[in-house]
């Protein structure tokens, strides 16, 4: 087991307990539980998966295989803010490419990377279902549509 800082370990434990409390430990609630913990902590630390494997009486590999499958779950730490840029065709043909380039230029990181100060993680995602307002991206839980390259700087400035 990876030993984490005591504070963090308490926080992870609490997140797991909260999720179990809310959903109950039945198989059909595993994914909602993982979403909940991921939302609380930003990602799914190894300790959380280990605790879940005890609670669900399943090998940790099974829990990990689920956690690593879904796009909204992360098994590695991410920045304080996560940007998910839609790279599907409807956003692409209405100018998504230049907006994405603007994001890369402003953030100075490549897709999949986290900035050195730990503030930003830039990810690409498949269609978000807001295609009528493409190009679109999400910062944490906020949706931005009809984005022009020039707006990128202003949007990102809203985040601490």
């Amino acid at each position: 087991m990876i030993v984490l800082d005591a504070d963090i370990s308490v926080k992870v434990h609490k997140a797991v307990q909260d999720a179990i409390q809310k959903y109950g430990a039945s198989d059909d609630e595993l994914i909602p539980i993982l979403i909940h913990i991921n939302h609380d902590l930003g990602y799914l630390p190894s300790q959380a998966l280990e605790e879940l494997s005890v609670i669900f009486k399943k090998p940790k590999s099974k829990i990990f295989s689920v956690a690593s499958f879904y796009g909204m779950l992360s098994t590695t730490p991410v920045g304080r803010h996560v940007i998910r840029f839609c790279e599907s065709a409807p956003c692409h043909v209405v100018g998504g490419r230049v907006v994405f380039q603007a994001l890369i230029d402003v953030l100075k990181i490549n897709p999949g990377e986290t900035s050195k100060d730990g503030k930003w993680t830039l990810l690409t995602t498949s269609c978000l279902g807001i295609c009528a307002v493409g190009p679109a991206f999400i910062v944490d839980d906020d949706i931005y549509g009809n984005v022009a390259p020039a707006q990128v700087q202003t949007i990102l400035a809203r985040y601490e």
Binding site: D27, D28, E29, L30, I31, P32, L34, I35, V66, F69, Y70, G71, M72, L73, T125, S126
Partner: peptide
Amino acid sequence: SGAGAYICGEETALIESIEG
């Protein structure tokens, strides 16, 4: 709730996903 996987729109994958 799904968790971000296009394939879960396929009905048997969707069922697997509900089963955790």
